[in-house]
């Protein structure tokens, strides 16, 4: 480590460039894989492996630097600013998909319904899979061929809303535990949060299986299917990431890494978790509830 004043400046590091190479391998492999070219899946595996190893090393370094007390208040602020604005960029990513959903529901589908010349007889009711897709089943209809059933809001989705909302509460309790230096409370509630996160994911998988096997609701079921699965799917991906991050933080809590004064790692993950939570609320309202 070199010293350039109080602000911590890391030494040269090979992690970023190797991570980039891993990402390249993953991307290249992915392109080859979706185009059914040999080696694609192997390249993807290789890329993923490189990235995972690098993340371990990189974050490991950050954690040990943090534990060694190399980060002063100013460095801590750099982390805070960048985490906060990173979450903002994630919001914009979801914004693209929400925007697509609103545009489709408010403009595209009604216009298709008005285009009698091209799509005679097409009724512009949401949910829809479009003029040539399967037809959405109305309540109390018996499913027939060429039909799909929209996802109901008041089953698993409502339960999942409850779960995520509670997890927002439990992580706050964990934070309070941390602030009071009550390790028992911290670890218990952090653990509970993780359990809720996993429960959410299990139910989400259950819902997908249900959609595919019983409702004929698939990614290919027109715009309804596309927006439904892409929005909930990316959200699920973020919950997965969040849960992994929660687990890492739990381990660090158990190792006694955080103090009531300094625990940016914990807070960053808590912010992230709240963000995932809020996205879900929007999903619940606009994807499941207001059909």
């Amino acid at each position: 480590m070199s010293s350039h004043g109080s602000y911590y400046l890391p030494d040269p590091s090979p992690y970023p460039v190797i991570t980039s190479a891993g990402l390249f391998s993953l991307a290249l492999g992915f392109v080859l894989w979706i185009n059914e070219v040999a080696l694609g899946s192997w390249l993807m595996l290789l890329g993923a492996a490189i990235i995972i190893v690098m993340m371990f090393r990189w974050f490991g370094t950050v954690v040990s630097e943090s534990e060694a007390g190399t980060y002063d208040k100013q460095v801590d602020f750099s982390f805070r600013w960048s985490m906060a604005w990173f979450i903002f960029s994630e919001i914009m990513f979801f914004g693209a998909f929400f925007g697509a959903l609103f545009y489709i529901r408010m403009f595209a589908v009604p216009w298709l319904g008005d285009t009698e010349l091209l799509w005679p007889g097409f009724e512009a009711d949401w949910p829809t899979a479009g003029p040539e897709g399967p037809i959405a089943l109305q309540p109390h209809e018996v499913p027939g061929p060429g039909q799909f059933t929209p996802m109901a809001a008041w089953g698993i989705p409502a339960l999942n809303t409850l779960i995520l909302l509670s997890s927002g509460v439990t992580i706050t309790f964990a934070h309070w535990g941390l602030l009071k230096d009550n390790r028992g409370q911290l670890i218990t509630f952090q653990f509970l949060t993780i359990v809720l996160g996993i429960l959410f994911l299990v139910l989400q998988v259950e819902e997908y299986v249900h959609a595919y096997t019983e409702l004929d609701l698939t990614l290919k079921a027109g715009v309804y299917g596309a927006t439904f699965f892409m929005l909930t799917g990316f959200h699920g991906l973020h919950v997965t990431m969040g849960t992994i991050m929660l687990i890492v933080i739990l381990v660090r809590c158990m190792k006694g890494h955080f103090t009531p004064q300094r625990h940016f790692g914990f807070e960053a993950v808590a912010w992230y978790w709240h963000f995932v939570d809020v996205v879900w609320l929007l999903l619940f309202v606009f994807v499941y509830w207001f059909l």
Partner: peptide, 8 residues
């Protein structure tokens, strides 16, 4: 982006 499926 496929109108046949309700996109645009």
């Amino acid at each position: 982006f496929d109108p046949a499926g309700g996109g645009d």
